[in-house]
Amino acid sequence: MLDGYEIPLHRSLIDPLLMAGAPRAAAIAIGTLAAALALGLRLWVPGLVVWLAGHSFAVLLARSDPDFLWVAIRSARHREHLSC
Rank of each mutant, 00 (worst) to 15 (best):
V49R: 09
L60Y: 15
W51A: 15
A36F: 04
E80C: 06
M1T: 02
D15H: 07
S83C: 08
I73S: 06
R74W: 12
G21T: 01
G4W: 06
P23A: 04
S64T: 14
A58Q: 05
A27P: 13
E80Q: 14
L52Y: 05
A36V: 05
H10A: 10
R77N: 06
T32K: 02
L39E: 00
A58I: 09
R11K: 11
R11C: 10
L69F: 10
R77V: 09
L9V: 09
V49E: 06
S64Y: 10
V50E: 05
G31T: 01
F68V: 07
V50K: 11
W44P: 06
W44G: 09
R42T: 01
R63P: 01
L69H: 10
I14G: 06
L17G: 00
L2S: 11
D15P: 07
V45F: 08
A76C: 11
R42Y: 03
A35P: 03
R74G: 07
A25E: 15
R74H: 13
R74A: 13
L52P: 01
W44T: 10
A29E: 07
L13H: 13
V59H: 05
A72W: 15
A20L: 13
I28M: 04
A20V: 12
D3C: 07
G4T: 05
I30T: 02
S83W: 11
L61K: 15
S56L: 15
T32Y: 00
W70R: 15
H10L: 11
V49P: 08
L61A: 11
F57G: 15
G21Y: 03
L52E: 00
P23Y: 02
I28W: 04
W70K: 15
L60V: 10
I30Y: 02
A34E: 00
L48D: 08
D3I: 10
I7G: 03
S83Q: 12
P16L: 01
T32Q: 04
L48P: 07
A20N: 13
A22Y: 04
G21S: 03
A29C: 05
V59K: 01
A76K: 12
A22V: 07
G47C: 01
L13F: 14
Y5T: 09
